[in-house]
Design a protein around this nucleic acid. Structure first.
Lengths: 201, 201
DNA sequence: ACCTGAACACCGTTCAAGT
DNA sequence: ACCTGAACACCGTTCAAGT
């Protein structure tokens, strides 16, 4: 695991191959298959490792909204800790392997706002999709810039500052205020005006 | 292009290799490199092809919010048209190649609400990240289910109906109502309470 | 203009066999 | 319990050469 994380951080996801990992461990590639069933399993473990580094800062007031924001920011920081971190996590999460922790943590924070479990889970998924998409984008831009690959006006023009913390916080704000409004417009104990209707299955 | 799209839709992204594509065209693999510089370029063209199929339904009232929603839904439909469509588009978009169209269309729709260009662009990026993340998730679930791979209680339990149109619409609603609120709380011509501050660069 | 042939430098994974 | 050796079935890409 340590060797794999080192390769990931120093050379990136495309260079994290079973053969290369074996080589740095002075071992035959086949030896890895005693420890991991396959590469996907290995990547899932790495994803868990990265994600477990996400520890939200203590938030003084018990506000659910800032607690959720703290979770999202902790997750972003953790993903930024390792090169290609967001891609590793989102790919293993897409394959349905491990890494259910981030969504659970986000959902738990949201639930403190009084949302029902299903709404909390779906909102958490929305937040997670945004975080992963944003940080993936951010990291790709980082190494594209470091490689000097500009690819037509696509670089860090301040007009479209899609990457960066300000844009991240803005996206989180949109989702959280959207949720807040959800809370106000739904008549408690009555018919919520906008909720996951019976069409969800 | 047609042959590549056919392989993608029938066998999925992992099976869309240069050698396989060449074989279905009764041609040597090296022949493809006269038409495309490399595989990434080919995938970028495919992504454009998929995305160009996104035609939003006509929205009767000129409401910016429903226009934006229509764009997002058209994009989702287009991505769902081809197997692994979301992954193809988000990977090429991550590499900074082509496919700037979806974000532009979303941003244009948002701008009709009176948002400044930068806010519109960043909000469009947030929407796009959500759409791609959601549909990726959805498509992966689709073929995981079709393969009978269940991978511990992870399948289509109605409690966490993350995939599907209802969850999609809910996520879009969160972002759009968040934007609406942004419009109300910012004093026009004054200091917006929540905007992309000077920290953005 | 468009393609072949042949090669280069890789992949992930399996499996009998060793210690 | 943990690893080697050797193989299988692939990859993307380059490049001289053909027509």
């Amino acid at each position: 695991m340590a060797a794999a994380l080192a390769i990931l951080d120093e050379h990136g996801l495309p260079d994290l191959t079973m053969r290369r990992l074996a080589a740095t461990l002075d071992v035959q590639p086949s030896a890895l298959y005693w420890h991991f069933a396959n590469k996907q399993t290995l990547l899932a473990s790495i994803a868990d490792q990265i994600v477990s580094r996400a520890v939200p800062r203590e938030v003084r007031d018990g506000d659910w909204s800032s607690a959720t924001r703290a979770e999202a920011e902790a997750l972003r920081d953790a993903l930024l800790t390792f090169r290609d971190g967001a891609e590793v996590v989102s790919s293993t999460l897409a394959l349905g392997l491990g890494a259910g922790e981030p969504q659970s943590r986000l959902a738990a924070a949201i639930r403190r706002g009084g949302f029902d479990p299903q709404t909390s889970e779906v909102a958490a998924a929305a937040l997670l999709h945004f975080v992963l998409g944003h940080v993936s984008h951010e990291q790709q831009r980082l190494q594209a810039d470091s490689l000097g690959v500009v690819a037509e006006g696509h670089s860090a023009d301040p007009a479209t500052a899609i990457g960066g913390r300000a844009a991240f916080d803005f996206g989180i704000t949109l989702l959280l205020t959207g949720l807040e409004l959800q809370l106000l417009t739904s008549t408690p104990g009555g018919h919520p005006t906008r909720s996951l209707g019976g069409t969800a299955q």
